[in-house]
């Protein structure tokens, strides 16, 4: 007794598998479109800017003459702003994520906060710029400084960090949490002995992805008043006199990579387009490098964690 003969079953399977092939092809085409677009842009920038990619490009200030202009102030500005962003967004975002997952009572207030955090991630970045202009620049009197820009971008990526933290905490099995509580651990002991160490990989990934987004942000940075032409560096964070550390750089005017690129692309002289392409290439490369770092860190940290 059989519903279908083996020959019929085989014909049926062959027929069904046709859809596997169809979908496989569609998938590859979609993927190719995405990849090709990106590769074309990347290669195009590389070709246009290749001539400018020399060591001096990194060590020269911007200049009126395209051939001598460099990105020194821009990449140092970007680095400093990113440091402030990370220093602010990581502790705030991780703490908020842990609180929401482990401590917050399950009531309507928590629900409202949760929904709003997701909404915050969708707010256009220019709006953060406007908020920062009112709050940091004027209200707090931080002016058009590295600190303002760093805080602005920190606000921008805070939702990303919070969501990444919560998701990696949720990935920890309830059984492990219960095992720790059952041994008499307090909430804080569970957080610092288990929750934090097991979710570090996911949190780091979220942080870096957020940073990779922030590094290319232009609109909010322009809004808070980054300069487009700057021929000096912020004061060094390390000094030769005690206490050897200085925070004056936080209050210094600055520029960042995307603004430098924007500035060059808006010049009439075509020689500046090559500079823009070269700087664009470097910016994309920085983003890719950060994503690569995220993947590597996640791999390293998760290697020792299995459930």
């Amino acid at each position: 007794m059989a519903l279908q003969s083996p020959a019929e079953i085989r014909a049926l399977i062959a027929n069904h598998k046709r859809w596997d092939i169809v979908f496989g092809v569609i998938g590859i085409v979609c993927l190719a479109i995405c990849l090709m677009t990106f590769v074309t842009l990347f290669v195009d920038m590389l070709i246009d800017g290749y001539a400018r990619l020399r060591p001096e490009f990194f060590t020269e200030f911007p200049s009126r003459r395209a051939g001598q202009a460099g990105i020194l102030s821009a990449w140092i500005g970007t680095t400093m702003v990113m440091i402030v962003t990370a220093a602010v967004a990581v502790p705030l975002g991780v703490a908020a994520g842990i609180y929401l997952e482990e401590y917050a009572p399950g009531n309507w207030m928590t629900d409202v906060i949760e929904i709003n955090i997701s909404n915050l991630a969708g707010v256009p970045s220019i709006v953060y710029g406007l908020l920062a202009l009112g709050l940091f620049v004027y209200q707090f009197g931080l002016g058009q400084s590295v600190a303002t820009a760093g805080l602005t971008l920190a606000l921008l990526i805070l939702p990303v960090v919070i969501v990444a933290t919560r998701e990696s905490i949720r990935a920890i099995p309830g059984a492990i949490r219960e095992a720790a509580y059952a041994l008499g651990a307090t909430k804080w002991q569970v957080v610092q002995g288990h929750i934090l160490p097991y979710s570090t990989g996911g949190i780091l990934t979220g942080v870096i992805i957020g940073m990779a987004r922030a590094i290319g942000e232009t609109a909010p940075i322009i809004t808070v008043g980054a300069l487009t032409f700057i021929a000096f560096l912020p004061p060094s964070p390390v000094t030769t006199e005690p206490p050897f550390l200085s925070f004056e750089w936080l209050m210094s005017p600055f520029t960042v990579m995307p603004i430098q690129i924007f500035n060059w692309t808006s010049r009439p002289d075509p020689a500046f387009q090559a500079n823009a392409a070269a700087a664009g290439f470097i910016l994309v490369f920085m983003t890719l490098a950060m994503n690569g770092l995220a993947i590597w860190l996640r791999y390293r940290i998760r290697r020792n964690i299995k459930w």
């Binding site: 059984a175 095992a179 059952a182 008499g184 307090t186 288990h194």
Partner: peptide
């Protein structure tokens, strides 16, 4: 409850080692 859990121990259905 923490005091209680320090005095009584539990072994669960599925082994749940910490990583």
């Amino acid at each position: 409850p923490i005091e209680v859990r320090m005095r009584l121990s539990m072994v669960f259905q599925k082994p749940n080692p910490f990583p």
